[in-house]
Amino acid sequence: MRSKGGYRITSSNPFTGKLVTKEQILSPSGQIAMPFYSFCDFVTALYFNNAPSSIILNVGQTDTLYPVCDWNYGTTAAPDASVWSSNTSIASVSPSWGSARTLSGVGQGSANIQATAEAPELIDNDFCSLFWWSAPTVSAQIKLPPHHLHVVADVTGPITVCPTTVFRSVRLQVVDFQHTPVGSTSVQESYLNQPINNTCGSGSPTPTVCSVTDTAGRFYDTFQVGCNSVGGSCGFALHNRWSWCPAGVALGTLLNDVRNNQVTVEGYTGPIPTGTEILP
């Protein structure tokens, strides 16, 4: 049990507005040592509400962090908390006050997002004293945004269910402007030449709606006219563009000539060399 001494006043808790008794302890030498509150509300934790331990953003993207305190009576926003980034050239936090702080991706790299707040803590189950609380650090990884595509594989061959028709599967990967894979992202397809005249009589293709890539940012772009009774070199020309869904940013455009017996992609009747860049 902490010994008490000094003087006692009644005031309001600066955090809750409730009336509390404030006492000032005198040290053995008679100096004022520390303030504390009795019968006060106290904090048990400071943290970012619902924030993962690691946040991944692209440069230019933002996320919102909510600093909160767990009090003995419940959870409240902590608008007074100081929130800062370990490297503001990578990630920044604003504003300096408020229940919601905007985390912005500034440059490529990693930064730690930290928060502190001064609030009462319970001491010895009896008294309260002001204490600097720290929230668990959130790691912010800032990546460059998707920029263009790389060819990672290209396979052509007759289709099992109609072997006179050729199928081509080009596997593409979304990369940033430094040619680094961006990881899982979303892409969608559009056609630049309309209408499409399919001389095989097997209808028109449909562009792919927004779809998630695999964890490495890879996806397939496939080409075939479909099983048909015309045969030979029937088919159609198709210029398709892949875009990054959230921002609608064009990533790569492919000029294709899709025939029953051969598929030409970007001028290649054979496989496109692995690593070839596909630009918007």
């Binding site: 562009p207 792919t208 397939y220 496939t222």
Partner: peptide, 9 residues
């Protein structure tokens, strides 16, 4: 089977 199969998978 009998229509053009293009784009994503």
């Amino acid at each position: 089977v009998a229509e053009p199969g293009m784009g994503g998978r």
